[in-house]
Design a protein around this nucleic acid. Structure first.
Lengths: 204, 204
DNA sequence: AAAAAATATTGAATAGACTCAAAAATAAAG
DNA sequence: CTTTATTTTTGAGTCTATTCAATATTTTTT
């Protein structure tokens, strides 16, 4: 039975998250003050800090929600991968990138990524890192699936290769949010980078 | 002819950098206050801000100096690469990592990387990004050198592959500074990841 | 349903990064 | 060597994330 307290807690968490999400999107992370979030969420500053450890924490929480969506979208690609290695990789990468930018601004991504490096031991940073790990595994799974379907050579370590490919696409996403690069440029750059690997591991 | 002003400016820059380097190493980035740096460097807080835009800026400046050393060390490996692809890659990676941790703590690296993502347009962040680009090129050059020496297949895009390999080793370094992973574990993880690529591009 | 215990909220106080108008130091001009 | 102009330093003041002791609310006990 959910007591009054539990209900209020869930309610406040939701209000704070919603307020922060809106404000971060509208004004950018830096311009938003905890006071602003607290006011819109109708709680005090102190209460905000009862629900989230730091200002960065709530951003990482918001971004983590988004990464969960990305993960789901990626799973669909792994389940029915395109025929060739190059196409399959590009499809997965495209899904990742497309989903990543629907709700979150570059500013929010940049800040969240920076903060997860800066404070890796915060609960939400851990969650974010875990999700990153799941994405990495997903790329490995894709390679494995391609091997299973006879599309890729089976004499290569799928996990090792998948990790490398994921780390590359992740680092390229960082470059993207750091700059004013358009999404299309990011995608074609990664396609080009994946080219040699796709060529080399494709089944003859 | 260097006037009095120019001399004093160079002198103060040096004092501020030295003070900040020592303090960051001793106490960690967060624990050091601008006031502390200013006091040891024998300038005022305002003057500090005349020389560096932000607290993060000076850290990125310090780290950038270090990356220049790493770049030099890497050049030696590219000039005379080991015989096999796997060995050559591992030698270069090892040189990068070994040099990176001589003067800078994990805390300093973590903070510098996070800040270069957070404020990519600060002058020192640009410099840091540029240096990263040079390191990336160095990995590409290594692949190219291996191809030239007949150690690697010449039918693969060396630049594309080099970028991927660099982005991977860079991302793994981030994982390393985020965690309490020992250096040896980092190195063997990257060696494992590079395995498939080395195998695939080695000349028959 | 009153009292006691446990849990949560609150906002004034703290700390430290950063700013900026006045003062000082250096350079240039007369 | 003065005077004027230019550049630099300075530190008190501002802003905002974060803390914490007092207060209020909810739950448990009697």
């Amino acid at each position: 039975m959910t007591g009054l307290r539990a209900k209020q807690k869930a309610n406040r968490t939701e209000r704070i998250l919603a307020a922060a999400t809106d404000l971060f999107r509208e004004q950018g992370y830096d311009a938003v003050r905890i006071e602003d979030i607290a006011e819109i969420a109708e709680v005090s500053v102190g209460t905000f800090y009862n629900y989230f450890q730091t200002k960065g924490d709530i951003l990482v929480a918001i971004v983590s929600r988004e990464v969960e969506e990305v993960l789901l979208a990626g799973a669909a690609v792994v389940a029915r991968p395109p025929k060739t290695v190059a196409e399959a990789l590009q499809r997965l990468v495209g899904v990742y990138y497309d989903h990543s930018i629907v709700y979150l601004s570059k500013d929010m991504w940049r800040t969240a990524m920076a903060l997860s490096i800066l404070n890796p031991d915060t609960p939400f940073s851990r969650r974010y890192s875990d999700l990153d790990g799941l994405l990495r595994n997903q790329v490995c799974s894709l390679i494995l699936a391609l091997q299973t379907f006879g599309r890729a050579r089976t004499d290569v370590d799928a996990a090792a290769l998948g990790e490398t490919l994921f780390n590359n696409l992740n680092m390229m996403f960082i470059e993207y949010v750091k700059s004013d690069m358009p999404l299309a440029v990011l995608k074609s750059a990664v396609a080009r980078q994946n080219g040699p690997v796709a060529q080399l591991i494709s089944a003859e």
